[in-house]
Amino acid sequence: MTESEYLVETRGLKKYFPLTGGVFRKVIGKVHAVDGVDLHIRRGETLGVVGESGCGKTTLGRTILRLLEPTEGEIWFDGKNITDVKGKDLRHIRRQMQIVFQDPMASLNPRITIKNSVGEPLVVNGIARGPKMRKMVLELLEKVGLTEDHLNRFPHEFSGGQRQRICIARALALNPEFVVMDEPTSSTDVSVQAQTLNLMKDLQDELNLTYMFISHDLSVVKHMSDRIAVMYLGKIVELTPHDIFRYAQHPYTFALVSAVPIPDPRFAGKAQILSGEVPSPINPPPGCRFNPRCIFAQEVCKTQEPELRDVGDGHLVACHFAGTLDFGKSAQQEYAEATGSM
């Protein structure tokens, strides 16, 4: 078999959660967290994933890693269908795919020292123990900018940003091929964030890693990613190899980039806030899911669901009017021009 160009692929992937209610916790509905996602991630690339809180980014990542059972659809990894693998094979696959969780505190055991937390996967998988494990852990910690005197400390002794780096160190312990980074730098400051991101890029080159990079910070996603997927209510609405700040084609993507706070008080209040009711993943609207909040919506948007189609050189958009809409200029674009950073 030839090596497939894609390391990760999903086909019509769905993940629903039961919604319970009432005193007896009866199932009264379904949360359509991931609702039909087709993705291809190339070897060595970084796919950025952005979208509103609750749109299903974390669920997508966890389902691909088989940490959640998919409701429907297929997951392919390294040319193999892994949707149903179990037992030893699943454990083997899990070593090659790691995740850095959104909540660093929740993923570190508070009673275990940093050395043992980071070293745990090494011990469990029989790779190293004792002094050798300590040495490897120290190397990992140094990679993420921590030092020897952090080894025997406990998670609560660290600041939020430091904890996140510990999680990154642990995810890298097993030399994975594919890493899902769920908001890896959201609670670190710009300088440390820059260090961490630069480091993640270096590690990617060095170890030929493939990343799925989930973040709310669009400038960070833009910096890190080769392609960006924009999610809305469980679906991908735009997938682009281009700069989303300048070449957004889906109205939601444009709304997203227009809401980014501008780091200059002279522009205070210029960022545009997306209006309209917050959509519910329990009863997603028919037609285009974005139609109730979309300023360009026509009749067809209320009844027909737009398909994700190629508008040229691999830029995919799910909008009936992709390519024909004029968004005008965002305040962010004006800011960029004013500061000469275009």
Binding site: S191, A194, L197, V220, D243, F245, P263, Q332, A336
Partner: peptide
């Protein structure tokens, strides 16, 4: 600190630290 703030549109290979 202010210098390290990422400019939204900038293309930079490495972020300033």
């Amino acid at each position: 600190l202010l210098h390290a703030v990422p400019k939204l549109h900038e293309e930079r290979e490495r972020l300033p630290q």
